[in-house]
Design a protein around this nucleic acid. Structure first.
Lengths: 208, 208
DNA sequence: TAGATTGTTAATCGATTAACAATC
DNA sequence: TAGATTGTTAATCGATTAACAATC
């Protein structure tokens, strides 16, 4: 909060956080910036700089205490509290994501699914509550849902996003190629587009 | 090729390409850099700069011809040829992606699926050919598959990536939180991690 | 102690933004 | 013609890389 962290650094710290989580599970307790850099494909300078934003102290000469570092990241980035999330658009992709088991252990709870098609809502097999799309603002607000995944056809992306924002959502992962235009309430949006990724990959391969 | 295009510019040009595609479908024939900027949430300077990398000419005073611009991007980034792709890991997410209809119209053909589990291969419902994972290098090479999506458990990501690279793959979209380490043959890899995106969103929301 | 590794300052690099002359 | 909008150069901004003193 006080020291502003650059966006790319935030992204890397998130990546680092998940990496530390895995290391911990594998039984490690300490790690050096150069080891991290090697595993994450970054420079060790970069890692130390990023960790530096946490305004915090590793042990000079012998690296970082994994648990301690995790706690620092967690506190600084606000990971110390479970968050509710929802999925809008319950087609193949949406229901696949909704049923991801990994969310829970990472502090996210998928508490609702939405779709505009009644048939979809009636036939879907899941333990998670599902609602018609027009209830988005209401449910999001009532259940205090903070994050949303949009997996609807691109033509519906903007209106869905607006309904979510109306309900007070804090962030959106948009799986649609449509670029959502900001409303009055500005919230972070992450765009993921598999075909777009293919385009980028094939462009990079072609240019190399 | 001759004028090196910065990576962020490549990403934006891909985004622009898809946007132009949509515009064309909606019946538009020309557009200005400021209109593009507005729709894509970027600065108009930025757009003109990026288009400038194509070493190419819009019409001063009246914007860009959409079809012409598309052709230029297409040629410069190598989109003028259909490419084959495959999916490794046929769980819920993998099979959802494999059956995306949108690939075709964007110049990508999913020609194979792989999984290490024989039961999965036997029970999966799809028109696309599926193979056991150990055949990856062989099939990728034989069918000249250029792009791959990895949707396996993170513990298998590295070995799958290596098999793909062995077969001569040109690029990978990695849906695993595991960061794939580069092999001798360096290829572009795009990492997508839904939980990671949640982390980033919640961090950004928290810090704002 | 000596070796290792952090934290931080300074230098470099690259991308974005601004501005404006050229021109349709 | 006048208005609009490009293409490009220059200025700014920010992030990454390098280097090294501090210290466990």
């Amino acid at each position: 909060m006080q020291t502003k962290i650059p966006k790319p650094a935030v992204n890397r710290l998130c990546m680092l956080y998940r990496f530390l989580h895995r290391l911990e599970n594998e039984g490690f307790t300490t790690i050096s910036s150069s080891k991290i850099a090697e595993q994450l494909g970054l420079g060790s300078h970069n890692i130390r700089k990023d960790i530096g934003y946490l305004g915090e102290i590793g042990i000079t000469g012998s690296g970082y205490d994994i648990a301690k570092l995790k706690t620092h990241i967690s506190q600084k980035l606000g990971f110390d509290r479970a968050k509710k999330a929802c999925v809008v658009g319950l087609g193949r992709l949406g229901s696949a994501i909704m049923n991801f088991e990994k969310f829970e252990i990472n502090g996210y709870m998928i508490v609702a699914g939405f779709d505009s098609n009644i048939n979809v809502l009636e036939t879907i097999k899941t333990n998670i509550d599902v609602y018609p799309a027009y209830l988005i603002p209401d449910i999001v607000q009532r259940l205090e849902i903070e994050l949303a995944v949009i997996t609807v056809p691109e033509s519906a992306a903007q209106s869905v996003a607006e309904k979510l924002i109306e309900g007070g959502i804090k962030g959106i992962v948009n799986f649609t190629p449509f670029v959502i235009k900001p409303t009055r309430k500005k919230i972070p949006i992450r765009n993921i587009d598999v075909i777009g990724e293919f385009d980028i990959l094939s462009a990079l391969a072609y240019l190399s």
